[in-house]
Write a protein that binds this DNA or RNA. Structure first.
Lengths: 225, 225
DNA sequence: ACCTGAACACCGTTCAAGT
DNA sequence: ACCTGAACACCGTTCAAGT
């Protein structure tokens, strides 16, 4: 019965495949996203995926695009600091559920309509703040990278591992730091707990945004001094 | 004549292998650093490298450590802003020749004596600035990520390619941006040139450092208000 | 201590073919 | 349009063995 064939295995689409790939990336890391692995999970031949994606790289782009698809564009207020903050928060919010994919997402920003909207908002805000095109461009890119930094801040490194592996890694790391010579690295040893466990992710997230905004504000004041 | 055997192929060492790996990473990207490829270049069996490195991951750690080895530790001045700036500049200076390895280097900072020295300087400076252990730890890590961002700023994405490929990619990107609808993305189109070509890397580098310092200074003032 | 050789289970990708 | 099958050239890694 050919009509119910889709009940057995719904035919693939670029979005469907990319979403499955994103799930793999979230749980096991980006480098677990392979054509062959993905094909097996989708119950399909590796070659089937080549109809939807040119290469494995293209697949990873598709995965990143799914994250950008979810960006909810902020409305402009006209106040430059508020606008650039809103753009930054919008991007970070979309990326937070997918820290493992963050780097890829950043690379795709200029190739995606939502990414371009965010960049547009950032650039016009920075221009309004008085920065030259060169400075504004650099700061916009730095905002992008700050967003990646915020999103990946909890996990000490973004080597793709499962959640349990990463926790174990964190514990090992804290033990290592705590066992350092306090005479040689007093501040590091004193910060062992704070460096590895983040009690309140929300407040650190806010701190990251504030840091960037404060930096831009400081530079802007210097600029027009 | 066994004594001159070393003239044909000097015996391997962890540092020698890592340095060759770093060269490959610099010219062709991190993912071109494979055990087999490296073995071929060194005129040796793939398995020979397993004597010096446990896994391919360990090899990449070794490569990153070579970058950190070259860090020249700044002397402390006692003024916190100057001290954290000096630490940031020291790290960026060491990483700049190796942008492709920057991410890996950042991950190794807490596992390397030079990295620990930098962290020690950053944490004690941030404590002196009045930040809590949690905030200081977060800002120190953000400094690290800012450093990575600065180093990789020129190359639009860090997908490992040769220098020529990256230039071509840049040109293509500029063309793409320039061909966007100016009605929809006026600021982006206006910044097409500034976004893709960086006239003076030094000044942008300075801007990145200034941005971070200004941000920390702004937060510190808010903190003790 | 330091390196070789054979083997295994992965991987991306091309080409030709099926429906 | 959408997918299969066989094949090729890579890859990391284990195990046993050589000197």
């Amino acid at each position: 019965m050919p009509p119910t064939r889709t009940a057995v295995r719904p035919s693939l689409s670029r979005e469907l495949v990319a979403d499955r790939a994103l799930e793999i990336a979230d749980t096991e890391g980006l480098e677990s996203v392979t054509i062959r692995r993905l094909a097996t999970e989708l119950g399909v031949t590796p070659m089937a995926l080549y109809w939807h994606f040119k290469t494995n790289d293209d697949l990873l782009d598709g995965l990143a695009d799914r994250v950008l698809d979810a960006v909810e564009l902020p409305e402009r207020s006209g106040e430059w600091a508020a606008d650039i903050r809103a753009a930054l928060v919008a991007l970070v919010t979309a990326m937070r559920p997918h820290p493992q994919a963050a780097h890829r997402v950043a690379e795709r920003v200029m190739a995606h309509p939502k990414g371009l909207e965010l960049t547009e908002a950032a650039l016009s805000a920075l221009s309004a703040a008085g920065f030259s095109p060169e400075a504004a461009s650099y700061l916009a890119m730095q905002a992008l990278r700050s967003a990646v930094a915020m999103v990946t801040a909890d996990q000490v490194d973004d080597s793709g591992q499962t959640a349990e592996e990463r926790e174990a890694h964190l514990r090992r790391k804290q033990a290592t730091i705590a066992s350092l010579d306090p005479a040689q690295y007093p501040a590091v040893v004193a910060h062992a707990r704070a460096m590895t466990y983040c009690g309140d992710p929300e407040s650190l997230f806010a701190l990251g945004v504030d840091l960037f905004i404060a930096g831009v504000r400081g530079l802007a004041e210097g600029q027009r001094r």
